[in-house]
Structure formats: structure tokens, C-alpha cells
Simulated scan of single mutants.
Amino acid sequence: MPSRMLVEVDGREVELSNLDKVLYPSAGFTKAEVIDYYTRVAPALLPHLRGRPLTRIRYPNGVAGQGFFEKNAPSGKPGWVRTETLPVPNSTHGRETIDFVVVDDLPTLVWIANIASLELHTPQWRIGADPDLLVVDLDPGEPAGLRECAAVAVLVRDRLGDDGIACYPKTSGKKGMQLCCPVAGTQNSEIISGYAKRVAEELARTVPGGITAKMAKQLRPGKIFIDWSQNAAFKTTVAPYSLRALSLPTASAPLSWGEVESFAIGSATAHQLSPSEVLARLESDGDLLAALLSPGPEVPAR
């Protein structure tokens, strides 16, 4: 296989390189397979990325090597890649603005996959707009795991449902789960984050032995941390269908509530999903997170 080759993707020329390079050594999963996965999952993934500034976690030498976060558009990007210059308050690099890549189309997705952007993270808002998503991140403290996350997810679903807010679950692709909730897009991140915090604290009071709403890691063993802070304007969450950089390839995968309930009671084995499992489920079930693409209700302000 040549080390570099030009391919046409939806009318754009994209240069691919080192396709046989193994990025997940424990699975022998190559860069070509990463690009193939992102190409095949693109019809479901792209609508969740469009209009959102993208943070990438790149692993040029594979997951066994050093990875790094990248927000700024890299030098040498194709001229047709969309970028947006956005303010970045409190940047650790002292920058006032960053030129973010925005993945609106398949050529851009293939390009970022080719530069070993394994993980794709986005904020809860689209450029120029208030948040259209509320995210509840469920992070298990050992020995709690995905099963315990599923049980808490059901509690969160029912509590948010009391306020007319619908939740759609997905695995994180690592240890836990996230619940994604479409909201109206008419309230700022402070209101959304404040509401999520109130709900998290309420549930922690209700189930103090199994839930915490506090970030201190010493409080987490055996509990599920409901991370309400993911709704802050500067925070990002792993995108639906994104790969994760573990020893074996997994992806952040949508779940049905029937699956979540089965995980919670132990009638099905709770596990993170592989790329092939995600693609098979997408073919049979479609995008279980499609409802996130339409506005939801406003959250209670108090």
C-alpha cells in the first residue's frame, strides 16, 4: 500500500497517508479501519457535529503513544475545511481566540480521521447560539460500573421527565454513560448548568449511598458522580459515535431505554460497544439520538 494517496470524497480531494499504521495495537486496528468506521458512521454522526466547534484528541502514534488535545485548526489543513474563530476565555495557552475546525461534511470528517483524530468532542451549543442540549454525565467510581450508571440513568430520566425533559442515553465508550436532552436553545449555559446541578444535588440527597453531585474524587468510590458541570459553556462532551482511545477500539454508542433498564437489573451484560457493533446497530435501528436534532423545552429557571 502506498504511504500517501489522493482520494475523492464528495467532490473534494483528500490526501490519505500511512493507512496500514496500527492505531490500536491490542486489536491490530489500523488507520484505514478508523477512516472506514468514520466514513460508514458519517450519516448518523455528521448531523451531531454540524455547526459545533470541534475539539479533537489525536494519537499520531496510536493509543499506546502520546495523545494530545487539539482545538486550533492545524497548519496545512485543506483550504476547503471550515474554521470559525471563537473566543476562549481562560485559555491555558493565553490565547484570546482559537480557529476551530467545524465538521460539516464527509470530506472534513475523513481528513480529521486521517490525521489520527480518534476522539471527537463538542460543546452543547452550536456556533452563534445558546445551548440546544443538556448533558448529564454519569461517571462511576470503582467498584461501581456501567450497570450502576444504568440504574442512576433511569432515576435521572424519570426526574427530568417530571419537568417535561426527554433524555436519550449513550455509552461514553469508556467507563460510564451520558444522557443527552434536547432543550429549547433559548437559555444560556448558566441556566442550563444551574438546573442540571439542582437535579444532581436532589438525586444525591435521595440516594446518598449511590450518587454524588460533588466533584471531589475521594467521595466517588462505589458511587455514580452526576457531572452537571458538563453544561458549562467551555466544556465539551464526547460526540455520539466518536471512537475512544482505549487499548481496544470502542465508541460512544446510543442505547435504547430498554437496554439501559436491562443493564440496570442485570438481565443483560452492560458493556461498551465496539465499532463493528455500533455500525450493525445503526444499520438495524437507525440513529437512536435523532431526536437531539430537534429543539426541546426550556428548563425550569428555578
Rank of each mutant, 00 (worst) to 15 (best):
L6G: 10
I224N: 11
N72L: 10
L279E: 09
E298H: 10
A32Q: 05
G173V: 03
I98A: 03
R58A: 06
R147N: 03
S274T: 05
Q218K: 14
E15C: 10
P2Q: 06
V299L: 10
H121V: 13
R4N: 13
R52M: 11
K197W: 04
Y241G: 00
G258S: 10
Q230P: 07
P131E: 11
V299G: 04
P140F: 03
G258E: 15
E84M: 14
K217G: 10
V135M: 03
V14Q: 10
G128C: 12
A270W: 05
F29S: 01
F29K: 00
T236R: 08
R40D: 13
T30S: 00
I57M: 01
L246E: 04
G94C: 11
F69S: 08
G67D: 01
V88I: 05
T269Q: 01
R58I: 04
V41W: 02
P300S: 07
G194F: 05
V63T: 00
V63S: 00
A253L: 00
S193Y: 10
W125D: 09
P249H: 02
F69V: 02
A253P: 05
R95M: 07
G258T: 12
A213L: 02
E119P: 15
I211D: 08
D158T: 12
F100Q: 13
R58V: 02
L120G: 03
P169Q: 04
S262R: 14
S274H: 03
R12A: 13
R58S: 05
R95L: 13
S267Q: 12
R58C: 03
L45C: 02
P131R: 11
V199W: 01
Q272P: 03
A232H: 13
C181D: 14
V34C: 01
H48K: 01
E148M: 08
A251Q: 12
A166L: 12
P240H: 04
D105M: 09
E33M: 06
S117F: 05
